[in-house]
Nucleic acid binder design. Structure first.
Lengths: 404, 404
DNA sequence: ATATTTATTTCATGGCTTGACATAACCTCG
DNA sequence: CGAGGTTATGTCAAGCCATGAAATAAATAT
């Protein structure tokens, strides 16, 4: 029932209308943060505003399709029943796009955070070049927008998840895709020009962490999300907010030094986490059966107890524990979510990771650390990408109200 | 000339008077952030507020001794000259206290960030216990408050810097002092009860980083400060703000794993940075001449080219480079400040640290990284501690105005 | 059916910013 | 040296927005 804090205060002066905007944002944030539907009176108590003000603001929010009345809920107590308010299920929505190792994904979520559309297209990354890939994604985006329009949803923003370092829409480096300085934002914007959507591009691990943040609710405001796969990335949630870094290149956990004199890494350094815990390292050169994904193969071999696989998973877990310990020591975080391949292999990895962390993180001796698999599965990044529209709306609901 | 952004928006509803507070804070922040003195009209342009509003707010700020007129500055142009406004040199001030390896320090800074008082008392840490040490500091605090009162300064808050992990005033663990769960905040508050000051306690590296942030000005909003000494700590400045971590235990760089199978560390793990780059490790068991500090000895030996010392400094620099690389990969930071002993030894360390970082940080191949010694010297933490009062005032100037 | 309780809306009041206007202080040019 | 131009700051009526009191609505309890 705590008020969601956050957001930088506007640097411009506050006028009379700013007051109105400020309070509208405040009320909207409370509606979004509420676990269940919330009444006008409860809003008044939570925000400290008076009932008349709340009434006026709620009227505006309903007119703008941001909030819906759920009808009077008779809770058995005496007196006029409260009229419940919830984020609208038929107002603005967000589109998330993801380029995965095994295919392309598109998904749409509404203001309640519910996934209303989810499409997946298997694809071989070796084949198409960047423009072809993004054109395919653009078609999926159009289909998604049409599909949810039938349910009364208006997609207002799209975010693309990419496995690599992204700088203001430009993919600086994505080894898995073989991309280098690809302006994915501009390409995708051109391919979806008919939709006229604002398009953001961000790192896959960052967006997956963002997705997990929404899934975990208010209670989990600080955690490290680690995404396993061909590449290893991390997303940091601190005080309920995603840490992107000043240029958006944060979370390169894959190139943490695990052993200064270890195996050489394509990046030029030695002993990077990547060389011990990427999916390549875990499969250790063994050929994956045709028609099987690398993930599935690793699980199958681990399940049947193949010694080489179990050994390489153990090495990976140890290396991951060392790298994660560094991050926890630095950031004062007490929860780690294992995502991507690490989530699938978590039953073989978690214990080892935890033992390394317990040994190497200074605060672990007086404050316990939790290591657990992520909850959203392979669609985490696409969902997290779609959800970014909520944050944008949370900070500037008036921009939507003006347009809509 | 950019508006300083930041601060969380209050979670309570905005009333009419909130508008007044909001704008007062905004104007005050602009005066603080201005490089030189700024006029009312410039403030109006910068904030977007109208001149009348600025006039009213400035009147209030001057009455509250937060801002002073510097007299009309004739700049040669036609028209009535601007009346310059600067943060007051005789209003509220902040007190910083520091427990160092070589003694105790107390300092007072004013709203302009100028150090107005600085006292140091050499002391042997082996001798006194925690209460005795804090009583000594309390006496220094009283002297400092009296000394600056003569100059018209009113100390409104004190912050204590401690070499260890601090949790809401309680020192959880400070190996250098031999402290464990010492409620330094309460003890110091009791010892300085006559002053009636709010007292904060924070980590030494965090506060030193904070001091360097003020010294560097607006241009350097993201950096990692690494403090060398008997212990190694780090402070992170991201987007112009100190990252304290949710519980205040961030920055434990000293227990970054440099070599998983390396030397055992008192913390229980193996191969911590501490075991390679602490002052103990650099001196490598050689006895320091009586009457000389360990720092001075290390410098002297390095200066005379003693091979053992140069070798251990080289090892320390390599280890430091590895640990710092991890932090930079994780946080997307491009500047590292070497502080404490590392600053004194920087001419022997910087090159080696930089070569490790250039090799191990992924983004270094397309965005250069700067490694340089810190500017404030041994008083960095005390100054940074004293400066925290400005941040508090920046966020809630009205609390002071109400009291004063 | 009436009283009680709780939720929401209506209306006059007051605080704050605004925009227009007035005043002050300096430079420049005849 | 004084009039005119230019720039900076102060003053005043008007409009917008939240407030508090009173009114209305819609349930439950007696």
């Amino acid at each position: 029932m705590n008020a969601p804090s956050g957001q930088p205060r506007p640097a411009r002066g506050a006028r009379q209308e700013s007051l109105r905007e400020l309070n509208l944002e405040l009320v909207f944030r409370h509606v979004l943060a509420a676990e269940r539907s919330i009444s006008r009176t409860e809003l008044a108590a939570a925000t400290g505003l008076t009932r008349p003000t709340i009434t006026r603001i709620v009227e505006e929010l309903i007119a703008g399709r941001l909030v819906t009345e759920t009808g009077s809920a008779r809770d058995g107590r005496a007196g006029r029943p409260r009229v419940g308010l919830t984020p609208s299920r038929s107002g603005p929505a967000g589109l998330g796009l993801d380029i995965r190792t095994d295919g392309l994904a598109a998904c749409v979520v509404d203001l309640q955070g519910t996934v209303r559309h989810l499409a997946f297209a298997p694809i071989d990354l070796e084949g198409p070049d960047a423009p072809a890939l993004l054109n395919h994604l653009a078609r999926m985006a159009c289909e998604a927008v049409e599909a949810v329009a039938a349910e009364g949803l208006t997609v207002i923003a799209a975010t693309l998840a990419v496995p690599g370092a992204v700088d203001r829409g430009v993919v600086r480096s994505a080894p898995v895709l073989g991309w280098r300085d690809v302006d994915a934002g501009a390409l995708l914007r051109a391919a979806t020009s008919e939709l006229g959507l604002p398009i953001n591009v961000d790192n896959e691990a960052n967006l997956a962490a963002h997705g997990e943040l929404h899934a975990a609710g208010q209670n989990q405001a600080d955690f490290l999300y680690v995404s396993g796969g061909l590449d290893i990335g991390a997303g940091m949630i601190l005080d309920g907010r995603l840490m992107r870094g000043s240029r958006g290149w944060s979370g390169e956990l894959g190139h943490f030094t695990v052993d200064p004199d270890g195996k050489p890494c394509p990046c030029g350094a030695r002993g990077c986490l990547q060389t011990y815990a990427s999916l390549h390292a875990i499969l250790d050169g063994q050929t994956v059966p045709a028609g099987t994904t690398p993930d599935a193969a690793a699980i199958a071999w681990a399940d049947e107890g193949r010694p080489a696989t179990l050994a390489s998973i153990d090495t990976a877990a140890t290396a991951l524990g060392i790298a994660v310990s560094g991050a926890l020591n630095l950031l004062d975080i007490d929860t780690v979510l294992l995502g991507g391949s690490f989530a699938l292999l978590s039953s073989w990895m978690t214990a080892k990771v935890k033992s390394e962390v317990d040994q190497r993180v200074l605060s672990s001796s007086w404050a316990p650390i939790t290591i657990r698999p992520a909850t959203l599965g392979p669609d985490a990044a696409a969902i997290g990408a779609a959800l970014t529209f909520i944050d944008r709306l949370r900070e500037h609901p008036t921009s939507w109200l003006a347009h809509g």
